[in-house]
Amino acid sequence: MHGEYKVPGGKLVVVDLEVEDGVLREVRVAGDFFLEPDEAILAIDGALEGAPASTDAAGLAARITAALPESAVMLGLTAEGVGIAVRRALAHATEWSDYDWQLIHEPPQSPALHMALDEVITTEVAAGRRPPTLRVWEWDSPAVIIGSFQSLRNEVDPGGVERHGVTVVRRVSGGGAMFVEPGNTITYSLSVPEALVSGLSFADSYAYLDDWVLGALGDMGIRAWYQPLNDIATEAGKIAGAAQKRMVGPDGGPGAVLHHVTMSYDIDADKMLDVLRIGKEKLSDKGTQSAKKRVDPLRRQTGLAREQVIENMIASFRNRYGLTGGEVTAEEMARAETLVRTKFATDEWIARVP
């Protein structure tokens, strides 16, 4: 069995192993990490040898930590990362390069249609009728997108929404509210087979699916990192937030994961504060006194036009994993438009948590 895991902000860990009589055998850990002294790698292999195959990633990490000499130094590597790589091997997880990725980047669409397209495309990936897909959104109007479980009245100021002509929609994933305007945000979705995140905890999957965009930002001179549970941050502040939804496959079989991210390019913070009800409690764990400081536009950090930032991100993904151009099919669009009418544009859905 073979498993790979890219440690967030670190290096690739590769594990090859066998399972005999319910325990790990012939365990070999490798990768492009740094480890001192040399014999520490043998200690890691030895710690995993004979471990019950049912041991979770935390338990495997504990075995490794206990076996390492006090002088051991790991750079780009963590005991937890090795444990995750083992679990991915046992789960027969796939890798990014196993797939033929498709790009969808179409003209501006309505907020409700974007919500529906996320559901339709991810459902198609789960059913095996569509390849894993990177979809870059373009907005035709300003919007507030609230999380699946958020209270409408607690998150949105109706007066501000009316003053600024903002559309309110609710997405299928959890997480917090987002304020977007055409040209001021960069939003994308990844619709991926569940096998890509096999062996990862829900929290670990966020970091794993965000890793490519951290590399893309690095190519543009921005040192960014994953900030648990669902943020991307830089030294200057938060620049993006992610959310996920797991969708079951046909007949309850393996499904797909929807992972979507909204990045701040040039947010009008005053307008955002007039539209969203951002409480002191929400800001308290961010170490800031105002919501303005939480929004750090990519425009200032890159000095690039929004279109150029998107082009660079797409190029980075293509260079890493391959990417061919595609489009929403006529059938997918028809289903999405039906979902807009019957679900995403209805008061029943938008106010399902009043």
Rank of each mutant, 00 (worst) to 15 (best):
P182A: 14
L48I: 12
R135H: 09
A61E: 00
P132F: 06
L200W: 06
R135C: 04
N319D: 06
A85M: 12
A57M: 05
A330W: 02
S284V: 07
L214R: 14
R153H: 13
F317V: 10
A89S: 09
D157R: 04
I41S: 04
A291C: 08
A233F: 04
T346L: 04
R294P: 00
G218R: 14
T262F: 05
Y208R: 06
G322C: 03
M313E: 00
G287K: 10
D45V: 07
G279H: 13
H105R: 12
R341L: 11
L276H: 13
D219C: 12
R294Y: 11
G159R: 13
Y265W: 07
M313R: 04
E162H: 12
D270W: 10
F344P: 00
R88W: 06
V13R: 04
L273F: 14
W212P: 01
D268W: 03
V136Y: 07
T122C: 10
A345W: 04
F34W: 13
L75Q: 12
R335S: 15
D266W: 07
S54Y: 12
E281T: 10
V197K: 03
Q102H: 14
G50V: 11
H114S: 06
D45I: 12
G237P: 07
A330G: 01
D347R: 10
T346D: 00
T302G: 02
V14Q: 15
A315W: 07
G46E: 01
V144R: 02
R320I: 05
A334M: 14
K282G: 06
V29P: 00
E194K: 15
W137S: 07
M220Y: 10
E49H: 11
V27R: 08
E181P: 04
L17A: 07
D251W: 14
T78M: 04
V14G: 03
E281R: 15
P182Y: 13
K286R: 15
A143L: 11
F34H: 15
G241P: 00
I104S: 08
P250S: 11
F33T: 01
E327A: 14
E119D: 07
F202W: 15
V168Y: 00
G252Q: 01
P52M: 05
K292L: 09
D266L: 07
E331H: 14
K245H: 09
E281A: 12
L273A: 13
L229K: 09
L209C: 10
P193E: 08
P158C: 05
L323N: 01
M333V: 08
